[in-house]
Design a protein around this nucleic acid. Structure first.
Length: 577
RNA sequence: GCGGCCGUCGUCUAGCCUGGAGGAGGACACCAGCCUCCCGAGCUGGCGACCCGGGUUCAAAUCCCGGCGGCCGCACCA
């Protein structure tokens, strides 16, 4: 039995998590969290909050936005068009392929994004493309959109989607939060919440889910001022950069932040900063540095919104290197799309210390061309274009052949770019965004798997003490001579301190230690006969199985320091070393 | 979604091929009690399962069909 199977078995048996709706046979891609799992997950979320929000509270705030989101938001974000896979099946051998990938490879065509299934089908027909495996004929292209769709209100035509990421909540409400935070950049907006993706065939238990908890942060900054003032450039990143990935060299290199930025291995200082934090956060969950790394995503596998993406992966016994976080450099892609679709100006204004003369490209919409291609929405596009940064429009037209604003794709003929010199007292610009994004359920599983140990045929879940779901256990050595009563008092004292405590008096003392070890209780307190004489108890360590005596009076302080702050104070110090 | 294999107490399993004798057996875990007490000890008792639906049959855990779910392979994983 693999470690993964045994972790899953433990998870079911002891109440961490299990497949949802088991009563009716279960559904893959959905998990229930039981009492211990919920506590563990909550502690992991809280730890993320500490590392990413509380630590950076000068410029990072947490918000909450709804799961159900109107159609227009995901249309503007590009998800309706891009959060889709096109599949084509071979009619002879039944193999399935990504239609766009197949066309790219066989016909050498690029820029297929945004084509409909009918258009892709006709390309396959016209060019006579065949199955790359058996040369059989190909069927019609089918489209899978991974968004969960619903209607808002009864009998309503109003389509809503469950969000596949929390990020759009941060973008759509950016102006308000920016305002509430008194118009300062950099600004981080974070959110922990449920998201849904209608995966075609989720497997791998807790690793690929259709509904899961995302922990996400959008860091908005001035593209002209990309410095991250809190970045320590001497930190080391374990990384497989893009050029190595493309050569299939998956061995990570260890580089300092300094080098990574200098060589362009990481494009944004803010991304580098969050990558450093992510490493520390994951280590803090008990996953060692050598068991984690960052892997660059190649352009064709990146999400539609991102210019550079690093996946943070951790090594799992059964599934290999599994993504636990994504670090995307989203530039101004999202805000741009929302500006075009909503017609709102989401730029920020930054006053300059004195009036200066600047040179820039002014974007002048060509209305006739826009009307031809966008019809009634031409005005919206024109309006948005006027707010776009000219240099960036030019750059993208030259490099990609088009400039994208959400659902609108603007080509050369739609705009005139005019070089202008102007005296200004301030700048208006669309902020750039660096995004770290974590999946909570995967982290719960990864933390459990890395904590899973065996000793003398017994299971020990060696979780870091500060994420252990139960923090301390209290046992009376025997159930008589007044020991249970005394043990109840100790239990209450610890509970009153706000600790998560379990009282257990059933079975032999050895069995109780074993049960506690299995769910990762770091410390167990036993009330014995000596307790009645001198008011001391034993504290037993899950990891070393050694014991020390401690006075009941000191006990809450000692336990709390260890499980909340990971500090061993006397007499626990001698026990843990 | 396709193909292969599979689905019995919480877990591991016996039984299925060859339909009946079934009140579905065992082990571990769990619960209660006794005993004992510093590492899953012992004794007694208890709870607890044939994935769902249909069919064949006098009779289905067993045979057939459909569904659901799992594992593996292919594909997919923004």
């Amino acid at each position: 039995m693999s470690v993964a199977d045994r972790v899953m078995e433990l998870a079911r048996r002891r109440g961490f998590f299990w497949i949802s709706a088991e009563l009716y046979g279960g559904v893959s891609g959905f998990l229930d969290f039981g009492p211990l799992g919920k506590l563990l997950k909550r502690k992991i979320e809280e730890k993320w909050r500490q590392w990413f929000i509380v630590k950076n509270q000068e410029f990072v705030v947490e918000i909450e936005t709804p799961v159900i989101t109107p159609y227009k938001v995901f249309e503007a974000s590009g998800h309706v068009a891009h959060f889709t896979d096109y599949m084509v099946e071979c009619l002879k051998c039944g193999r399935k392929f990504r239609a766009d990938h197949l066309i790219e490879e066989q016909a050498g065509l690029t820029g297929l994004e945004g084509l409909s299934e009918a258009e892709l089908s006709s390309i396959i027909r016209e060019r006579g493309l065949k199955c790359p495996e058996c040369a059989g004929p190909l069927g019609e292209v089918k489209r899978f959109n991974l968004l969960f769709q619903t209607t808002i209100g009864p009998y309503s035509e109003s389509i809503g989607f469950a969000r596949p990421e929390a990020a759009q909540g941060m973008f759509t409400t950016f102006s308000r939060v920016y305002n509430a935070m008194r118009n300062r950049l950099p600004l981080g907006i974070a959110q922990i919440g449920k998201v849904m993706r209608n995966e075609i065939s989720p497997r791998q238990g807790p690793i690929r889910l259709r509904e899961f908890t995302i922990m996400e942060l959008e860091l908005f900054y001035d593209p002209k001022d990309p410095k991250c003032p809190v970045l320590d450039r001497s930190e080391v990143l374990r990384i497989v950069p893009e050029d190595r990935v493309s050569k299939k060299l998956m061995e990570p290199i260890e580089v300092t932040v300094e080098e990574a930025l200098k060589t362009g291995v990481v494009l944004s200082e803010w991304t580098a900063y969050f990558m450093v934090l992510a490493q520390k956060f994951i280590q803090d969950l008990g996953i060692p540095f050598e068991k984690q790394m960052f892997i660059a995503k190649l352009p064709q596998e990146r999400a539609h919104y991102a210019s550079q993406v690093y996946d943070q992966v951790v090594e799992l016994e059964k599934w290999g290197w599994v993504e636990v976080s994504g670090h995307a450099f989203r530039t101004d892609y999202d805000l741009r799309g929302h500006m075009a679709s909503s017609g709102e100006d989401l730029r920020v204004y930054k006053q300059l210390s004195s009036e200066v003369e600047v040179e820039d490209y002014e974007v002048r919409p060509v209305l006739e061309a826009l009307k031809e291609d966008f019809g009634g929405e031409a005005g919206l596009v024109a309006n948005a274009l006027k707010m776009m940064p000219g240099a960036r429009v030019l750059e993208e037209l030259e490099s990609k052949g088009f400039f994208e604003m959400g659902k609108f794709r603007v080509y050369r003929r739609h705009v005139e770019l005019v070089k202008v010199k102007r005296k200004v007292k301030g700048r208006r610009f669309i902020p750039f965004v660096a995004e770290p994004s974590f999946g909570a359920e995967r982290l719960v599983y990864a933390a459990m798997e890395h904590a899973f140990k065996e000793k003398e045929g017994r299971v020990i879940l060696s979780l870091p003490p500060d994420i252990a779901p139960i923090e301390v256990a209290v046992f009376p050595l025997v159930n008589r001579n007044g020991l249970p009563e005394k043990a109840r008092e100790v239990y209450k004292a610890l509970k009153d301190r706000g600790l998560l405590v379990e009282y257990d008096d059933s079975g032999s003392i050895g069995r109780r230690y074993a049960r506690a070890d299995e769910v990762g209780v770091p410390l167990a307190v036993t009330v014995d006969h000596q307790t009645l004489e001198d008011d001391t108890v034993t504290i037993r360590s899950r990891d070393t199985w050694r014991q020390v005596r401690c006075s009941i009076q000191q006990l809450p302080d000692v336990i709390e320091a260890y499980v909340r702050r990971k500090v061993a104070i006397a007499p626990l110090k001698e026990l843990i070393e």
